[in-house]
Design a protein around this nucleic acid. Sequence first.
DNA 1: GTCTATACAAAGATAGAC
DNA 2: GTCTATCTTTGTATAGAC
Lengths: 213, 213
Amino acid sequence: MKRPKDQLKAHIRAQNQTLILETSERVFARQGLAKTTTQMIADEAGLPKANIHYYYRSKKDLLEAVLERILRLWLDSVSEFNVEEGPKHNLTRYISEKIDQSRINKNASKIFAMALIGEETFVLDYLRNLFVTELSREKATIQIWVDKGLMASVPTEHLFISIWAMTQTYADFDAQVKIMLQKDQLVEDDYEEAKQFITRMVLAGCQVMEVEV
Amino acid sequence: MKRPKDQLKAHIRAQNQTLILETSERVFARQGLAKTTTQMIADEAGLPKANIHYYYRSKKDLLEAVLERILRLWLDSVSEFNVEEGPKHNLTRYISEKIDQSRINKNASKIFAMALIGEETFVLDYLRNLFVTELSREKATIQIWVDKGLMASVPTEHLFISIWAMTQTYADFDAQVKIMLQKDQLVEDDYEEAKQFITRMVLAGCQVMEVEV
DNA sequence: GTCTATACAAAGATAGAC
DNA sequence: GTCTATCTTTGTATAGAC
């Protein structure tokens, strides 16, 4: 049975962990994974460095906790395909949600990209699991649409690779995008233009029927 | 007037610099920019660490030399648009060349991506220059095609952002691509499929006329 | 031009007092 | 649970002999 004192402790623990994770996310995204020091995180969180190591034994542990948090959040923010609604609605929504993710959670996206480019085992393992479960279902759904004549047959894997690449680039390489668009900051309209153009290419490339289903 | 001795020294210098740069490119790509130590580079090049610092005063200098080498090489490996040939040929060739770049010079692409995601001043400055000179010309060429009715009017900046994102992802995030395709290594056929699919989306999205010009 | 030895700084991590 | 002080390792960079 939990006593009040334990509850207080648990509360403090949860609060500090959240503070550390949120701060880490910012610092990791800003500085890069390897350049980030536990000292920087401690300073920005307003805690002594030893506290960081009290909650997360090593920097690696901390990074993995940050990644886990990001990935859980991510899965929730993108809808699954709904076969009845047909390819047009689903692909349009999917692209829209991925772009929103880039805008709203840019740091998360950057950290994920950094971990992926650095081939962090943690992220690779996660992806392997995800693809076995998720992608095979999306692939089956697309096949149904193809069979119904609602869209052309496409290499599903390359389709997803392309959509992810196009949408994430607005978060991961936003510095490049800003230079291209000659802007100091990206605004909502920029993301909307991106959505429209990407959607247009995907729908046209997959020869998605214009008709409603 | 150069004496033989000076020529010998110059030769040794050039040879060592090339060795160091090529080795650095491999190690930077494998380990990440920040994780790479001058010691690793020295070991892999078979030189004492002090020699690295003799040729490149600091790690930052070395990284910039590596980046400069990569960027020079890159510019040469992609053709400019040729207005007479029309959009179909040009876009198809452009995508093909970019994918080839990903395959043949994967390390260079990764280092570039790492530097970009880390917002290295050196790379951002380079891009700024490039866009002022190159992109404005490509943009003008596309406008000519649009005026001639050879393709639809598209947001040029987003078009290039998308093409770069899709083609580079096969180099930068090849770990992810491998998982998606369930392969240990990407082979030429994988890159060919990517080329075809990306080209298909771009041409369809831009409503490029099928007719020859 | 090469390389050993070393200076110096900074990072990750922990011990131990409070 | 908090935090100061400290240990250990490792990195960048250079001095100085050859």
